[in-house]
């Protein structure tokens, strides 16, 4: 029988959202349009329209060693062209943001190829070849995994995920990379490391509270659904905890 991943336990909406994001068979809802040039501007790794700088010659032009693994694994577009490795980093507010660092890493590992994610408590970074990165970033920004107010694209100075939101609902950002305009649209005025952009990049309107609650992947007893209300999740985590505690005694279920 073929293995079919379950992606995660739980009966709550949060658990279901987590499984939805992780499952590459599910097509995530596209909630905003951002052009390729906008993504390049926010990332700040190269000027829009310029050629991709390379770290090595294209694979087709160089002699590759006779390696069985290279025959099994097809190189990604970026690797084939010899692109540099570059990154995008996200900060997700704890107030019902539609994704969070661990969730991002799991999702990316299931959905993308040739990536190196780094997971931290308040931020998540993913590194890969530049042209793959732009493709993946577009997915991460355009789909329901992003919200313009409660998720920030921040390469450095990420502080803010656990702080109160501002009066207008925006997550705190010391560098204020994005601003909420009078028309209700959030625009990036700086790239992810805080350098001013030549033109503002619109990333759409912040989602409303009901949408955020419905799409959240974070348990939060005060502003969302409480972890303790999901009995199946608790049972699962208790099982893991019990088995790892008894590990030295060779646990048998």
């Amino acid at each position: 029988m073929a293995y079919k991943p379950q992606y995660g336990p739980g009966t709550s909406a949060v658990a279901e959202n987590r499984r939805r994001q992780m499952n590459p068979g599910v097509q995530l809802e596209k909630v905003r349009d951002v052009t390729d040039e906008d993504i390049v501007l926010i990332l700040g790794h190269r000027a829009p329209g310029s050629a991709y700088p390379t770290a090595h010659p294209p694979l087709a032009e160089q002699q590759e060693p006779d390696c069985p693994i290279r025959k099994i694994v097809t190189a990604t577009d970026g690797a084939k062209a010899g692109d540099r490795v570059r990154y995008i980093q996200f900060t997700d507010s704890m107030f019902n943001a539609p994704s969070q660092p661990y969730q991002r890493t799991y999702t990316e590992c299931y959905r993308f190829r040739g990536i190196d994610p780094g997971t931290l408590s308040g931020r998540q970074i993913v590194e890969c070849r530049e042209r793959d990165l732009e493709k993946y970033s577009k997915f991460l920004v355009e789909t329901e995994m992003f919200d313009s107010a409660r998720i920030g694209i921040r390469g450095a100075t990420v502080h803010g995920h656990s702080l109160r939101l501002a009066e207008d609902g925006m997550m705190f950002d010391m560098l204020q990379r994005c601003l909420l305009g009078d028309d209700g649209i959030v625009r990036y005025v700086k790239n992810q490391i805080g350098e001013p952009l030549d033109r503002a990049v619109a990333v759409g309107k912040p989602m409303d509270e009901a949408w955020m609650k419905k799409h959240s992947t974070i348990f939060h007893s005060l502003v969302g659904s409480a972890y303790r209300d999901d009995a199946e999740y608790i049972e699962y985590i208790q099982r893991i905890h019990s088995l790892r505690t008894k590990y030295g005694f060779m646990p048998k279920e």
Binding site: G155, A156, T157, G160, L163, M174, Q176, I193, G194
Partner: peptide, 22 residues
Amino acid sequence: GPRLPATVPYGPARGKPNPHPD
């Protein structure tokens, strides 16, 4: 409250001005 520095404190853009509306 959390501080709003006049210049970017760290990262590749360290030392550059940090205009902040607040």
